[in-house]
Design a protein around this nucleic acid. Structure first.
Lengths: 204, 204, 204, 204
DNA sequence: TATGAATGAGATTTCATTCAT
DNA sequence: CATGAATGAAATCTCATTCAT
């Protein structure tokens, strides 16, 4: 029987993950040492290992948590959007309006780094493939919804359009996590939106 | 063995760089240890350090060499293309036709990893900024050429379109270096091409 | 084992320094490898680096500690000596009575090696200059005391006499750390004492 | 039958030794790498190993050469000195007048470093003991000459006085190779001379 | 003989993980 | 549960020496 509450444990886990995100974002996964997380979180090394089995597990859970959050959040926001197009537009707006804080840039880097990392670890390919699949089907279903309602062209490959969306998002995320120019970032997303929407829209 | 020709040394350097590319591609920059390069190249550790001052320098020179090659190659191929649109189409074709060999996927990963790496190393930001600038102005000038000839819309921001091109390229590069499905890769590039060309083209 | 007392840590530090002194004395600073200290102290490599940032820092702190000890010790012993001459005699006696144990010979070598080492390291010159200054002024003040009381000649340059004392000490230290003949060592110090005392004494 | 003259080889050997002295003086024996000597002497690494079997051998021969030079030189200069006292005075003058050039300071450091080095290498103790013996007997014989002629006190231990001379010389050499103040150096030697001469002289 | 590229054992330092307290 | 000192395998880089040319 545990001496501390579940909630206490959850908070500690989260504190560790938040510190880890900062550290991984700042220095990269490999370059981050456990002592960085100790210093940032003020939680002792031993305690960290009580909550996570290894540095890699922290990394994995961090990614899991973030994509869970994305979907939870996205789900909520979509409830009262009337049609597919407004959902697409909402998505672009969402990324466009993201502020290029150090934190956000770091989170992007962590996320992209994880692509590379998992490309190379046989045992992580699965994890990553599933996550990718989730992201893909998310937009895919919006596209298909739009096709059903006649908002979007009938002959689009919905999977492909979804892939393209995420490729654009990751490509510009990568560049702007480096460049960090907020204004240009927003303009770029404006153009991406036009580009994308123009392409999928059924012409009158 | 001393007093070897410049050519001999050049070959050795290249052999090391090629091994390094393989290793960095397979395991990532940080995870690659010098002994991996030793094993792959069959060149002794000491010899490697005769040619490069550090592991980081190998990394830098590798990137330098690859982007040099890109521009040299691109320059040559463009000589007999008649107009801006054919150049743009050619560029898309070029990336579309790239074969997703292990080598190419690795090269892409190394390249993207370098973005992350240089984001974090103050002294590399410059190197990377310049390289990015080079890539940007390369397409920017094609866009502007097309605007002069009336092939492309007049109100495009050429820099932005160039950024978008490279964002798409890096985003899809990242994903397909992981997914590795050649057929889908080509289809994606076909759609990207339509998307992009449609957007920049002057309507009749 | 954590949350150990300050005393525990202090003891560990001292154990490392003592081992280092033995090793540096036996093989010299440069020739001593960390594994020598590990073997001698039975403290793991990692633990040593928990206490000292580098091999050089061990060296520095070792020297610091030894000269601190000299002054602390010297201060105490002088408290009840009635005049300058007895202090000078006491100093000579102190060095004369030093036993040429392996440990003492090694300590002398380490000390002299440090002169050479710091001569060559711009950033250590300061450290060494200060230490030298401390040793010089220590005897200088005794000489001046004797001049005030009329025990010693008035026209001595007290700094110079102090320099000469330490030159004699280091020169004979160097030689006897090599020769190691206790009896001759004592006789030499007897003569040095006569030489020195005769020179500084005010003739009646 | 060799293809080059003995003289050529001798010159090469000397060039290497001179470079080695500079390098060992500047950086110390251990810290000097063969490439330093290559750079300084502009003689190739292979060639150096044609003339000397190892870095240590260069060190040894360097010391041998320097002490040979000392004795050869000393012998010559003494030929027309009339008595023991003038020889003693000449010796002090010789050291006093030495200019504290970088080269001389370096040579002193190399020499002292060699004391330490040989203290620790069983196989070098012999070499060093013999060299020491040579230096000792050199002054010892002058003292004894002076005792015979009645210039010096009869009850001096000539060996000991010689030891003291060299201890003073090495001690002040060590310090001034670090301090490098020419004027003070000369004053110190003036006092050392008085100290020493006063002590050994027969009182009228 | 001269050259200098190649070798690889070995040195310093790091850091994920463990575990005694 | 928390702590943080201890561990030691492993990584980077060095450099005396060799030897093919």
């Amino acid at each position: 029987m545990p001496k501390v509450s579940e909630q206490y444990k959850e908070e500690k886990r989260n504190a560790i993950l938040e510190s880890a995100l900062r550290c991984f974002g700042q220095k990269g996964y490999q370059a981050t040492i456990i002592d960085d997380i100790v210093a940032d979180s003020k939680i002792s090394k031993g305690a960290i290992y009580n909550y996570f089995a290894s540095k890699e597990e922290i990394y994995l859970q961090l990614l899991q948590k973030r994509s869970d959050e994305f979907f939870t959040d996205a789900e909520q926001r979509f409830t009262d959007l009337p049609n597919a197009m407004s959902k697409v537009r909402f998505l672009f707006e969402r990324f466009r309006k993201q502020v290029l804080t150090e934190q956000n840039k770091q989170a992007t880097r962590v996320y992209i780094e994880f692509w590379l990392y998992s490309s190379r670890q046989e045992d992580l390919r699965n994890v990553m493939e599933q996550r990718y699949e989730q992201f893909i089907s998310y937009i895919k279903s919006i596209i298909e919804e739009g096709q059903k309602t006649g908002e979007f062209k009938q002959d689009l490959d919905s999977t492909q359009m979804s892939q393209i969306f995420w490729a654009m998002r990751d490509g510009s995320g990568l560049h702007y996590s480096f460049l960090g120019d907020q204004k240009k970032y927003e303009q770029t997303w404006k153009v991406l939106e036009e580009l994308f929407v123009q392409y999928i829209s059924e012409r009158p």
